[in-house]
Design a protein around this nucleic acid. Structure first.
Length: 109
DNA sequence: TGATTGACCAACT
DNA sequence: CAGTTGGCCAATC
């Protein structure tokens, strides 16, 4: 684990997010400890397309469940559609019942 | 190599 | 109560 770069650690965690669940940038940063900040997680997601494995970045949102990075999925509605296809309801770019869908790696992993 | 930026967050004004 | 500022650390300009 320690051999992995911060990015790879982020990818590893995001890949383990269960179907129909979401988490936040801050939760991932907190789970990884002081090795990075929420900003770094977002930055890692920005480069997630460079990762060899598929990273379900659509399951990662900001702390209030808002789809801040939806524009980076190739379209402004792709992220929302992906989440809705997993049974997550979204209104105004915001996840409904976010706390119910929330998956905390530090708590569940 | 210094300055800027970024899919964020919390504190401060 | 809304807008600004600082901090986080790496990548890009």
């Amino acid at each position: 684990m320690s051999d992995l770069s911060f990015f790879e650690k982020v990818y590893a965690v995001v890949r383990q997010i269960p179907y129909g669940r979401v988490t936040s940038y801050r939760a991932i940063a907190r789970y990884l400890g002081s090795e990075g900040s929420a900003r770094m997680v977002g930055w890692a997601m920005n480069h997630s397309h460079t990762a060899t494995l598929d990273v379900p970045a659509h399951r990662v949102v900001n702390r209030i469940g808002m789809l801040t990075g939806k524009h980076h999925f190739g379209g402004p509605h792709v992220m929302q559609q992906l989440l809705e296809s997993e049974g997550i309801e979204i209104i105004d770019d915001q996840i409904v019942h976010f706390e119910e869908h929330f998956w905390d790696p530090a708590r569940e992993l």
